[in-house]
Simulated scan of single mutants.
Amino acid sequence: MRKKSDWQLFAKISWMIGFLLVIFGSTTINNQAKVLASATYNLAPYLWTSAITSIIIGAYIALLFLKQLKLKFNLGLFVCVTIPCLTLTLYYPILAFTPAFLENLEFLALPQLLGLTSETIFGVVAGLTLILSLFQWRE
Rank of each mutant, 00 (worst) to 15 (best):
Q136C: 14
S38W: 11
W7T: 01
T27A: 14
P93T: 01
T87W: 14
G123C: 04
S54L: 05
I121E: 05
T27K: 09
A59Y: 02
L134F: 14
S118Y: 15
L130A: 12
L69M: 10
L110Y: 04
F135K: 00
F10W: 05
L113D: 02
I13T: 10
T27Q: 11
L21T: 07
L21A: 06
Q112G: 02
I56F: 10
F122H: 11
A96R: 06
S50D: 13
V35L: 15
R2G: 03
V81W: 09
L110F: 08
N104V: 05
I29M: 08
T117S: 03
A96N: 09
L114D: 05
I56Q: 03
K4M: 10
G25L: 10
I94N: 00
K70A: 06
L75T: 09
L71S: 09
F65L: 12
P93N: 08
D6E: 13
Q68P: 13
V81F: 11
T89Q: 10
A39E: 14
N42M: 13
L88R: 02
S5M: 13
V125D: 07
T98N: 07
G123T: 08
L113H: 06
F122Y: 14
L88W: 03
P45Q: 08
S133W: 04
K3L: 10
L77D: 13
L102C: 03
G76C: 06
L128Y: 11
L47T: 03
I52R: 01
S26M: 09
L95R: 00
T53D: 08
Q136W: 13
C80G: 07
F10K: 10
P45M: 11
A100S: 12
V22Y: 09
T27S: 14
Y92P: 00
L43W: 14
T49L: 11
L63S: 10
M1D: 11
I29W: 15
Q136P: 07
E106C: 07
L95N: 03
A100I: 10
F10D: 06
I56H: 00
Q136Y: 14
Y41W: 04
T120C: 09
I121Q: 09
L9T: 03
N30I: 09
